[in-house]
Design a protein around this nucleic acid. Structure first.
Lengths: 143, 143
DNA sequence: CTGCATCCCTTTCGATACTG
DNA sequence: CAGTATCGAAAGGGATGCAG
């Protein structure tokens, strides 16, 4: 049906899901299978922002669009569908005119928002160091 | 020079970095500038895996490659360069024959690894729920 | 207002072959 | 072993127009 909502490969690179592979005996090898599945969603920038935006309560479609400066309608739709599919967000339609649709984190989504916010916090606190490192690196490798 | 190591746009979508925009007065609006910059790195699956792999000590190039099943040589190189650029990883060359290169987390990188591991932990613990939600969603929307 | 479909350009990434 | 260079396929993502 909708090509928009079914990009054939919402999934991971083939290598990620390999139930045929045994969990690596190497203790240094973090078990990618599974972790990867969730990280691929968190790995999506827009998803992370939406989760952060929703962490303090339900929001409407255009409300989210305005809050996440720069996201296109298309990407917001795709992102929300992905989150809904993963059970992280609920979609509630109010059959009013004009229509109104609220998005809200599920319990699962709220749980995820905690480590995500921790990440965001770390990001804010260390942004300066990272930007300094980038500048330095770029200078040395090109001057 | 190297097209491999300098993909013109390692950066964020234009919308992300807008120092010209004031921090949104809307209290619901998380400050994207800055957070985005780090999340775009964490948002990269491979980066996350490399960080996790390195969290228990230095590793060699091919060692990492084997541990992260499925990553191509090219992507591992790009990922490591990106992490090095951000000051999260150090690269140490041993001028032996054959050559040996060790990658190790910096203090900054080790700091980041904590929230990243928290995310990984959450992922493992809730993978079942997410997969269940996906199955359910797919059934309802196509059955 | 919310959202789907299409066009189309850009970026990403894997495969492959080659070097110090 | 640890890269680098190049190429082609695929995915990402914006703009626009239409619909309930």
């Amino acid at each position: 049906m909708g090509t928009l909502l079914e990009p054939e490969n919402t999934e991971l690179p083939a290598c990620y899901e390999r139930p045929d592979l045994p969990a690596r005996p190497d203790p240094n090898h973090a078990d990618c299978r599974g972790v990867a599945s969730v990280l691929s969603r968190v790995g999506d920038k827009w998803s992370v922002f939406v989760i952060m935006m929703l962490s303090d309560g339900p929001k409407r479609f255009n409300e989210l669009k305005r809050m996440i400066n720069g996201i296109s309608q298309r990407m917001l739709t795709l992102t929300l569908r992905g989150l809904e599919r993963d059970g992280l967000v609920t979609r509630t339609i109010f059959p009013t005119i004009p229509p109104r649709v609220d998005y809200e984190l599920t319990d699962l989504g709220r749980g995820l928002s905690r480590p995500v916010e921790a990440l965001g916090k770390w990001a804010k606190e260390h942004l300066d160091q990272i930007e300094a490192a980038r500048t330095k690196f770029d200078q040395r490798n090109e001057g």
